[in-house]
Nucleic acid binder design. Structure first.
Lengths: 132, 132
DNA sequence: ACTCGAAAACTACCTAGGTAGTACTAACGC
DNA sequence: GCGTTAGTACTACCTAGGTAGTTTTCGAGT
């Protein structure tokens, strides 16, 4: 019973993504906890986080249960799903679905260290082995 | 004199991206031409396209010159810029800037044909040669 | 029992993308 | 010369993301 692989587009904004990432890390978190984690990177009001969580619940991205007075939120979508849908979007819109074009662009437009290239090479080799 | 490499985030929506792609292909195009190209894929009203173009001009994504009564639009941002900024966004937000993680995810979450893997391998090799 | 504080609920705004109707205008054909 | 038409301008609306103030509520501590 995997967590509802609704293969919809799953568009999440930047803040929403960050919140999801926090929830992925810790399974469950109160608004205060999420706010705390976000504190250093973005100076958001507590209510902003709470509102965002509520809006995300409307969209079924998260759900909550009550523990005394406080809400404990958990993610309803998996990291894989969101990652997949975001990368899909870019690969499709920008490179007409071609993975090779996408990677090519990635390599061409930034400088990649020798070490990274080696790592990538290993990735490809592994993928090949697995496919064989 | 490269076309204003304003390294800003350059967020463009789906429709805007499609319009830019059309303009990249043909250097200059009238609203009617853009509308015509878009016709089969999205059934948009002519005015929708015109409005979008106007909004894009406000944001300096495109510019126009007048040829008689009609506006000929051209892209002000390069494909490279937009591609770069979109891929950057995903790589940063989703993979903490790690290109290897990004590619790894790409390979893991979809099935890649043998031929594509070969192509990718070549890409890496080329990149290595170039870096050396 | 009463106050205080923390939490949620409600409401309100702003921006950007997307979509399109309506109004105006100028050129072109007859 | 006049109406049709193609083209732009203007306006409006909807959605989603993001941000936050204000109000209510409820539990805990004195």
């Amino acid at each position: 019973m995997k967590p509802q692989t609704r293969s919809g587009s799953l568009r999440v904004g930047d803040l929403q993504l960050r919140i999801l990432q926090i929830l992925w890390e810790r399974k469950e978190a109160a608004v205060a906890a999420v706010h705390e984690v976000l504190k250093p990177e973005r100076d958001l009001a507590y209510t902003t986080v709470a509102t965002m969580l509520r809006k995300m619940e409307e969209r079924s991205l998260v759900a909550h249960r009550e523990e005394g007075r406080t809400f404990l939120y958990r993610a309803l979508v998996a990291a894989e799903q969101v990652g997949r849908s975001m990368t899909d979007h870019v690969v499709e819109r920008l490179f007409e679905g071609s993975l090779a074009d996408a990677v090519s662009h990635l390599l061409r437009t930034r400088d990649v260290s020798r070490g990274e290239l080696d790592a990538l090479e290993k990735l490809i080799r592994d993928a090949k082995r697995r496919a064989k």
